[in-house]
């Protein structure tokens, strides 16, 4: 999510570098050749886990695939991404890859925007997700909005009073947006 270091690396060098012992506790993405450390905040983290929990509940009823959290990496159109939440169908991959970055891109990626995100990077990520056939939900904590990007289809916008539907990826899945944003007690 946020920039901590700014360094360009080849995919092969990146693969080696993330495995170094000093990096074992950190998470990195490789966006347009640039290494970016993933940093979040508690609000974005809460929203992400709320969405992941709803998807997991749905998947217990509909055995369609697996959900990964904010440390699940994927190789997307040659880049290394870590979406906040992702769903990958059994149809695409029957079991976990066991790799640091799953060589198969997910079917659905959820990106929760945090203030430290650079919007230019998100633009490139969405472009590459679409190229890899991935549906993307971009979630805006401040505006309580979600943008839905599907390959070959117009962008949809769901506002805070709306319901997010799983579409072809998670048929029958529905999420009332108000339920995923943190409330003050």
């Amino acid at each position: 999510m946020a920039l901590q270091i700014r360094q360009t690396m080849t995919a092969a060098a990146f693969d080696e570098w993330v495995r170094l012992p000093e990096n074992s506790e950190r998470r990195f993405e490789r966006i347009a050749g640039e290494v970016v450390e993933v940093v979040s905040n508690d609000e974005a983290s809460e929203i992400a886990i709320n969405i992941a929990a709803e998807i997991r509940l749905y998947l217990k009823q509909h055995a369609l695939g697996r959900v990964t959290g904010a440390d699940g990496g994927y190789i997307v159109a040659g880049h290394h991404y870590i979406p906040d939440v992702a769903f990958i169908s059994y149809e695409k991959q029957s079991g976990p890859s066991g790799e640091a970055y799953n060589p198969n891109p997910p079917d659905l990626a959820v990106e929760v925007v945090s203030p430290s995100d650079r919007p230019e990077r998100l633009m490139i990520k969405v472009g590459n997700y679409l190229a890899a056939g991935v549906v993307v939900w971009v979630v805006y904590p401040t505006e309580h909005e979600v943008q839905i990007y599907k390959p070959g289809q117009p962008v949809e916008l769901i506002d805070s009073s709306g319901t997010l539907s799983g579409g072809d990826v998670l048929p029958g899945f529905e999420l009332v947006l108000q339920e995923i944003f943190p409330r003050s007690s």
């Binding site: 998100l122 990007y149 070959g152 117009p154 962008v155």
Partner: peptide
Amino acid sequence: RIKIANYLA
């Protein structure tokens, strides 16, 4: 970003 995605579509 929305414009780009719609252009691509």
